[in-house]
């Protein structure tokens, strides 16, 4: 299968660079758990602002999906741009029977693999921090995969449209970082000022955080399937957006 070949291509590239990614993908969330989770968490737990839930257990499932999103977006911006602009690998692909959907499928498959491996490792960290409360916790893995792919689509589309790599640092600063800070990972979005709250509901990360937290505690609400559906919509729309942007860029 052609998409399979593209998947392999991505894996081979990763063999050369995996060491550098261990820090951002694995160590950074652990450090966040220590600094914010244990540090600030000490005071949160003292006041009982989150009820019976301790802050580390509250934070962990959110960090899990937030890291997944950041990884997926990071890997679908700069590397994709570079395959268009510098290595021109995608143009080389055009000369073969490989189609755009094969390249995209290979890339998304690769991202899914990376997200799942990272999230799996993070679950072990959660166990060390005593943040495991339910066997349903394993359900956070597909949530991480889902949010990763849901955000990767638009990111790929963006990378296929921009003409300069400088746009990525703007995108990270004005989109990705605000998303990760205000989507309910660190504190409930109900605490946001009234005008900001609806914005959080648009964020795919917020839906993923809610869903992930419900899995972590094994306590589901009626909204669970809506969260999943919302992420699926992003996934499908993202795919078409990425596909059309990709095709357009290749024609240039």
């Amino acid at each position: 299968m052609r998409a399979w070949a593209c998947y392999h291509y991505e894996l081979i590239g990763y063999r050369r660079t995996w060491k550098g990614s261990v820090f951002s993908q694995f160590i950074v969330p652990v450090l966040f758990m220590l600094s914010i989770g244990l540090g600030v968490g000490t005071y949160v737990d003292r006041g009982g602002a989150l009820g019976a839930v301790d802050y580390v257990s509250y934070l962990a499932p959110g960090l899990l999906v937030s890291t997944a999103m950041q990884l997926a977006v990071g890997e679908s911006t700069f590397p994709v741009f570079s395959n268009f602009e510098w290595s021109r690998y995608y143009y080389a692909m055009q000369a073969t029977p490989v189609r755009v959907r094969d390249v995209l499928g290979g890339l998304l498959g690769f991202l899914l693999t990376r997200v799942l491996v990272g999230a799996g490792a993070f679950l072990l960290v959660m166990a060390v921090f005593g943040a495991v409360h339910s066997p349903w916790l394993l359900g956070t893995l597909p949530v991480a995969g889902l949010v990763g792919l849901a955000c990767a689509g638009p990111a790929i589309a963006f990378a296929a449209r921009v003409t300069s790599a400088a746009n990525f640092s703007l995108m990270f600063r004005f989109v990705l970082i605000p998303l990760s800070l205000f989507s309910g990972v660190f504190f409930p979005v109900e605490r946001l000022p009234g005008w900001l709250e609806p914005l959080a509901y648009v964020s795919p990360l917020w839906h993923a955080v809610e869903l992930s937290r419900q899995f972590a505690f094994g306590a589901f609400t009626n909204a669970a399937s809506w969260h999943a559906a919302y992420l699926l919509v992003w996934l499908v729309a993202g795919w078409f957006l990425a596909h059309s942007s990709f095709t357009r860029r290749l024609q240039k």
Partner: peptide
């Protein structure tokens, strides 16, 4: 805004 104020609200009175 996120950590200082958002998380800050969770620790008000206890920090």
């Amino acid at each position: 805004f996120s950590i200082g104020i958002g998380v800050g609200a969770l620790v008000s009175g206890t920090f």
